[in-house]
C-alpha cells in the first residue's frame, strides 16, 4: 500500500495523468482476490500482509463455501451462490488452511506475514 500511495503522489507531482491512471488501476486491483471456479480456489495459496482483506468470489455454477479448516473456525462463509462473494480481514500472522465444507476436496491456504 505504501508503495502505491507513493506512486500516486509521485504521479500527481509529476503531473502525468498516464502514470496516475496506471497507479489507480493498480490500486483498484490491490485487494487480493480468490476466484472459486470449477471446484477449485485460484490462487490456491495466497501470501498477504497482516491487516489485508481477502475476498473470495464464486464464479462456479455450483454453490461453495470458504471454511476455516482449523477447529476454531476463525472465518466461515455462508453458502456462496454463483456471483456471491465473501471477505475476511487477516490481522494475525500465520498460515490459514481453508476448504469448501460442501466439497472438502477443495482446499486453499492464506499465508499472513
Amino acid at each position: 500500500m505504501m508503495r502505491l500511495r507513493t506512486m500516486i503522489v509521485l504521479a500527481a507531482v509529476l503531473g502525468s495523468p498516464l502514470l496516475a491512471g496506471a497507479a489507480m488501476s493498480a490500486a483498484m486491483d490491490d485487494p487480493p482476490g480468490v476466484n472459486i471456479d470449477n471446484f477449485s480456489f485460484a490462487p490456491e495459496a495466497l501470501v498477504i500482509a497482516p491487516g489485508t482483506r481477502v475476498t473470495w468470489t464464486n464464479r462456479d455454477d455450483i454453490p461453495h463455501t470458504v471454511t476455516d479448516a482449523a477447529g476454531k473456525m476463525a472465518f466461515r462463509s455462508a453458502a456462496l451462490d454463483t456471483g456471491d462473494a465473501f471477505s475476511h480481514v487477516f490481522d494475525t500472522p500465520g498460515t490459514y488452511h481453508y476448504f469448501c465444507s460442501l466439497h472438502p476436496k477443495m482446499q486453499g491456504t492464506v499465508v499472513v506475514r
Partner: peptide, 9 residues
C-alpha cells in the same frame, strides 16, 4: 453430507 473434513469425502 455434514461435518465434512477438509480434504476428505
Amino acid at each position: 453430507v455434514q461435518d465434512l473434513k477438509s480434504g476428505g469425502l
